[in-house]
Structures are given as C-alpha cells and as structure tokens.
C-alpha cells in the first residue's frame, strides 16, 4: 500500500533512536538535538537500558516519564494494584506498605502508563532539578496524552537539587510511612507553573470539603493526615488549614486508621452514601 513507504521510514527513524546513549530525555536533546515527543531508550549509570516517554515540548522540553500512579479500583483498600501504597492489606505492622516510593523496584511499561502503574529505573537513576505532572484519563494512548490531560503543570525552582536530585532520594529523607510524624512534619510544598488548567480548575477536581483546607498552585510531598497516615504527593495543592489529606493526596504507606488505605486513599469517601462533601 501507499502507506507502507511512509510507515517504513517512520520505523527506521524510531530504530535510529536505539543508537542514542543518554541517561535522560534532557540529555537526548542536548546530545542529539532531538525534539520530537515519543518513546526513547535511556541507560542507567550501571548500563541498564530501558524505554520511556520523553516530553520534548513543555517549557523547552527534556522531561523524562519516570512513573505513573493509576487507580485500578477505587473500591480496593490496599489490595492488588495498589503498588504506590500497599498490596498487602491495611496493616499497621507494615508501615511502609510496598515501599515503592523509596526502593529500586520497577514495574509496568511506558505505553501502558495510563492503564496500570508504571515505574522505571529513571525514578532513582536520573539526577533531576524539577518535576512535571500530567493527569491523563485512564487508557488514553500515548499519542494523545498531552491533549487529553485534565491537568498539566511543572515546577521551575530546581528544588530537587536540595533533596538529592530525584523522588527516590527525597522519600529517603521523608519516608512515606505510617506514624512517622504529625501533619506539621510534611515534606516540601513547591510552587507550580500551569501548562494546562489553573488554580480554579485544580480546586474543582477535588471535593467541596477539601477545597476549604488546601491552597492550589503547589505540589506537596510526604503529607501526613490527622491519623498519622503518610501520603506521597498532593498534586496541585498544599494542605494548609486541616489535614484530611487522604481525600486529595495520592500514594501512601501501609496503614490508614479509618481503613482508607490505597493509591488514591479516600477520594471516594462519600460515594457510598457516607458523609457528604469529601468526594
């Protein structure tokens, strides 16, 4: 068919990418002057080769996809698929849960990042300065991630320099662990620059009650709720007034007092006809 020629050239172009040697998407830009979004091969310091998605456009580009947090069942309570909290049940004897925020375990594939959890070696291997976050509807294919996203933003303060250069190192300093501290012991809250959405649209993604206790325009790390459960990331917001963070922060340790354990811990609190306003 007529398409065969173009398709072959396209695949040849992709094949050439496998000759690149770089540890991050930023290095691909700097060394090879490549500016096209898509999948690239990267190499760790130890020589492990893996494939991931590069966003080469946002704010000048060179953003490496290192992880995705996907909710396979909002009704699950630290069950199968809750890799970013615990797959071993809500258990105070496992305060770290699966521990994936601060270990070298990897899982999933870049192309499937909107259909299941994903974590690659870049998560702990890349020395980075900033973070970018995309909220992409489940099961959207890679070529539409950017357009389909309901929220996109990035940081510009180079804050990761202060915390060891990546989230792996940061969460060593601020463990995502039950009973590690009280709400006042949260990790850093960093101002964000919006690429899609704004403060108002961010607020509206969360329930009416959470809107009264957080400030939009930030990304917060290692939040702790009133019951001393730890959460990894409050995306787009900073808890300021009260600390029911289980309703708007994701990832976590292995135990939540009111059985709200999960990757999106208690985002669904009201859905089953309980109290109103948190969902």
């Amino acid at each position: 068919s007529l398409n065969l020629g173009t398709n072959f050239e396209h695949l040849e172009k992709l094949r050439n990418r496998s000759t690149y040697v770089a540890r991050s998407c930023k290095e691909i830009i700097d060394r090879y002057n490549e500016h096209e979004d898509g999948l690239y091969f990267l190499t760790t310091a130890n020589g492990m080769v893996y494939q991931t998605f590069c966003d080469m456009t946002t704010a000048g580009g060179g953003w490496t996809l290192v992880a995705s947090v996907h909710e396979n069942s909002i009704y699950g309570r630290c069950t199968v698929g809750d890799r970013w909290s615990s797959q071993q049940g809500n258990n105070a004897n496992l305060p770290d849960g699966d521990g994936n925020w601060s270990n070298r375990n990897t899982f999933g594939a870049a192309e499937g990042a909107t259909s299941d959890d994903f974590k690659n070696p870049g998560y702990y291997d890349i020395m980075a300065e900033d973070i970018s976050v995309w909220h992409v509807p489940n099961n959207v294919p890679l070529e539409h991630w950017n357009l389909a996203a309901i929220l996109r933003y990035h940081t510009e303060t180079h804050f990761l320099r202060l915390y060891g250069g990546n989230l792996f190192q940061m969460f060593m300093q601020y463990p995502v662990r039950y009973n590690v501290g009280s709400p006042g012991n949260r990790g850093p809250a960093i101002p964000i620059v919006y690429d899609h959405g704004d403060k108002e649209s961010t607020k509206n993604l969360y329930g009416p009650n959470p809107r009264g206790e957080f400030e939009p325009g930030f990304i917060t790390f290692r939040a702790i709720n009133n019951e001393r459960a730890a959460m990894a990331i409050c995306s787009g917001v900073k808890p300021v007034r009260a600390y029911n963070t289980e309703h708007y922060c994701i990832g976590g340790g292995g135990y939540f007092l009111t059985d709200q354990c999960g990757d999106f811990p208690s985002f669904d609190w009201d859905r089953l006809g309980r109290e109103q306003g948190w969902s």
Binding site: T64, V69, W134, V136, N138, L160, P210, I250, F267
Partner: peptide, 15 residues
C-alpha cells in the same frame, strides 16, 4: 474527588 480525577492516571516526569 471528581470522577474525572479518580479515573485519570498521574504521570510523573523529571527534568
């Protein structure tokens, strides 16, 4: 949180 939010994956990037 909104259904929009719970039915979206959170993608994390480094630079």
């Amino acid at each position: 949180a909104s259904k929009e939010m719970t039915e979206a994956a959170v993608l994390l990037f480094y630079r």
